[in-house]
Design a protein around this nucleic acid. Sequence first.
RNA 1: GGGGCUGUAGCUCAGCAGGAUAGAGCGACCGCCUCCUAAGCGGUAGGUCGCGCGUUCGAAUCGCGCCAGUCCCGCCA
Length: 585
Amino acid sequence: MQSVSELLTAQCREALVAAFGPSFQETDPLLMPTNQPKFGDYQANVALSLAKPLKQAPRAIAAQIVDHLAVDHLSEAPTIAGPGFINFKLTPEFLAQQLQQLQQHPRLGIDSVSDPQKIIVDFSSPNIAKEMHVGHLRSTIIGDSIARVLEFLGHEVLRLNHVGDWGTQFGMLITYLREACPEALIQADAVDLGDLVTFYKRAKERFDRDEAFREAAREEVVKLQAGERDTLRAWTILCDQSRREFDKIYQRLDIKLQERGESFYNPLLPNLVELLRQQQLLVEDQGAQCVFLEGFQNKAGNSQPLIVQKSDGGYNYATTDLAALQYRIQDDGADRIIYVTDAGQANHFAQVFQVARRAKLIPDTVEVVHVPFGLVQGEDGKKLKTRSGETIRLRDLLDEAVERARADFLERLRTDDRQESEAFINQVAQVMGLGAVKYADLSQNRTSNYIFSYDKMLALQGNTAPYMIYAYVRVQGISRKGNIDLSNLRSQLSIVLTDETELILAKHLLQLQDTLKTVAQDLMPNRLCQYLFELSQKFNQFYDRCPVLSAEDSVKASRLLLCDLTARTIKLGLSLLGISVVERL
RNA sequence: GGGGCUGUAGCUCAGCAGGAUAGAGCGACCGCCUCCUAAGCGGUAGGUCGCGCGUUCGAAUCGCGCCAGUCCCGCCA
C-alpha cells in the first residue's frame, strides 16, 4: 500500500508541476507530519523554500500549489498558514477506508520492496575463549533488529557472526595452556569457558611482561597459520567449546546468525596483499607492508599507515577485514554490507573502507556502512573493560533480568490474590525480562554511550517493552471477554471514527510503513521503538476513553478494528525488535 | 598533535535530510479503579537546547571557532 505521506507527496508533486512547470518534477514538497494538531495532520513546506528561486512571496506560491491540488478524496481543503505552510487534515472517511485496507492486508500495508538487495549484516562477533559480556549485547541486539527489519521488507539478508577465532590471542592462549592445563588442548570440555577466560587473562599478563613467552606465542601462531596438527586440534577444541556457550545465549535471545569467523578469510590474505601490491598501494616501512592513508596523520604530522602485513609476516585484523570485504562483494554478491560494532572502531572502518576503495574492491553499486554504537560505560563513565574483571557476563545479566521480572510478577499476583501455573509465570518472566533488556538497548539512539544500570535496563514502567506488551494484552483481554475472534473480523464492516482518540490512533496506525522505511535507511531501531511507544500511548488513551464491548454495534465494530490493528502492529513491531509478546498477564 | 562520538528538564534520553509555542520516560507533587486487567489514564512543577560567531525569511538541527566528557591513532582485535 502507498502510505498516507506518499499519497500526499505524490499529489503535491503533481500540483507543483501543474503550477510551475515540468522542471519541478523532482522538487521535494517537504511534506511532514505537523507538530501541532491545530495545523492539521501533515504540512508541506515547499512554498517557503521556493520563494527565492521563483522570486515570489511564499504565501502566493502556496496559493498556486493549493489551486492545483487534487486531494479532496483524502483531505479537507488544504489551508495556507503562517508564512506559507500548506496544511492538510485527513478526513475521517479517508482514514476509515485506509484502515479497511490495512485490515485486509496480510502484512499490515507493508509491501515487499520491488528491488530486493543482498544485504550482509555483520554483528555480534564475540571472541573465542572469552565470555560474552554486556558490550556484545548492543551489537547482537541492534544487528539482529536491523536484520529483521530488512528481511521483513523483502531483502535477502545474510547474518554473519565475524567471531574472533584467529590471531595472536590464540598463540598466547595455547602457549599458556600447554604448561598450565594441557588437557584442555586435547580433550573437549576439560575446562569450562569461565576457566578459559581466566587462563586467557593470565596468558595476556605473561605476554605483556615475558619476552620468552611472547616469542613462544608467536611461534604458536605461525604453527596455527601453517596448519600444524597439534596446534590446529587445540584451536578446534577451544572454538567448539566457545561456540556451544555462544549458542546458548543466541538461543535464549532468539537470534539466528551464521558463524564465519576471521579464520575463514585466512587463506585469502596473501592474495589480498598481493593485490594491493599490484595496485601499487603497498609501501614497506620498518619491515611491515603498509598502505599510507589519506586524511589520517600521526603525531608528527605524517601520513598514517594501515599495516596489512607485519614485519614477521603475520597479518592484522585490517587485512582480514579487507579480505572479508572482497569476499563478501565478489563471492557473496552483497549489495550492501552493514557492520554493527562499537563506535571505537570508527577509525578502523574508515581506514579499511578507504583502502578498499583505492584498491577498487568496492564497486559504486555496493554500499558499505559502519553502524556504530556508543560504548557501554560503568557508573563512573569509563568504558567497561574486559581486562578489568568487572565486566558483567551476558548470561548473568539475562538471568538477573528474568529473575527481576519474575519477582515483580509474583508480587502482582499476590496483590491480586491470583493463582497461576509455574509454566505461565516462567513464560511471563522470560518474555518481560528479556524484552526489557532488549528494548532498553534498542530504544536509545545507538550513537550515544550507554551507562550500564540494572535498574534502568530492567525498569518495567514507562517507555519499556512491558508497556507495549501490556497494551497488546489489553486487546487480547477484550477479545477474550467479548468472545470475539479478532482474526475473523468482517472485512466490510463500517467504520465510524468520532472520538478524538480514535482519530489520533487511526492516523498513527497508518504510519508504520513510513517508520519502517526510515529504519531500513538510517539503521536506527530506536525510531521503531519510538513509533511503538507512541502507538501504545495512543491506544491506552483510546482505551481509557472509549469503551469497546459496551458500545453500540456500529461503533463497537470499528473500535474492535482499531484494537485488532493496534495489537497486530505492536506484535509485528516488537517482533522486528526481536521481542515477543504474551496473550495475557 | 590528528581524528571519531557526545553535550537538550533534577536523572536517563528523543528530536538534528532547517520549519510554526523544544518532547518523552523516570523522579517530585495533585487527582482517577461499583465500569473491557491501574505494568494504565489525567494534571502541576521543571529548559539561556555547552559557549560564541556565521549561513538563512527561519537554526537544538547546517558551517567555523572555542570549552567539557569519552574513545581511537604502526606491527592486539
